[in-house]
Amino acid sequence: MAYLCTKFSPMKRVYQVAGHRFAVVMPDNHLAWSEMKPYEPFLTDNDSDLVFSAEMIDVMPDTTDKQKVTVSCEGPDMPRVELYDWQGQWLLEIAPLLEAPVRAYLITDKSFHMCQFRILGSMRFSLNTIIMLMFAFTTAQKDTLLMHSSVTVKGGRAYLFLGKSGTGKSTHSQLWLDNIEGCELLNDDNPVLRVMDDGSVHVFGSPWSGKTACYRNVDYPVGAIVDLHQAKVNSIRRQSLLEAYVSLYVSYSGYRFIKEMADGLHVSAEKIVGTVPCYTLDCLPNADAACLCYNTVAQ
């Protein structure tokens, strides 16, 4: 009888990102594990104090009595996430594009500690979206922001480049790497900002780095945050507290209609803009922009 039990035994792996541990549980022979390579630098043996545990399921329960709450999608080429209330839990239906069919389902209790997910396709996208959403939800009240940004390190300090999709965050990081000696990329899409116990602000690498394979389990104190805007002439200026707050506000993840989450995100953002110098950089995609930026923010 033993073989019946061992054929599809579940395997649990625990990862630690920005000091927060979470578990992923899937059948040990499942192909999805091959898409979890970017997470391997973040593996840990310590499975205490998990912020969440995500378990893959084969069969979806009947959710026809779901009630739609909201849909989020930032543009036709961006992922679509539909949120439903289903029997006192959240149900999320996830698609890679605005008009694409649903490729993944996520069911979670409203405190977000336990979730189950079912993946129909777009395996890497689906896994990443589920895990990133759960990470953002469960760390919102823990001085943590999952920031849409590209991060370059120079002289022991990290510099975050923000901007709407297509502004040139990755390009600007690359310009630093090409034109300023001793720079290295920390993350190219979704690093994690965290206010530390001593009040300092650090940025952590993550398994989520967009199109660039840069999955580094390291962290650095933040030297500056720079909001990029495309322009015909390069110029840079320091932001007011309010401007910095707005730049951050549109760059981090979370459901703000859930009050505890919105409150937590606000507390983190307020601490960060009060601590880290923030700038607006109007720029061309050229070496001068990188040098102007570096010479201003790294002083």
């Binding site: 309010l242 506000y249 009060g274």
Partner: peptide, 27 residues
Amino acid sequence: FVLRSLGREFILVAEGLEAADVNKLIS
């Protein structure tokens, strides 16, 4: 909308599901 304080300033933020433009912030 939710009113939030930021240092000595205030900012009105569209946080509810009812808000049409979720990225609207008013100082």
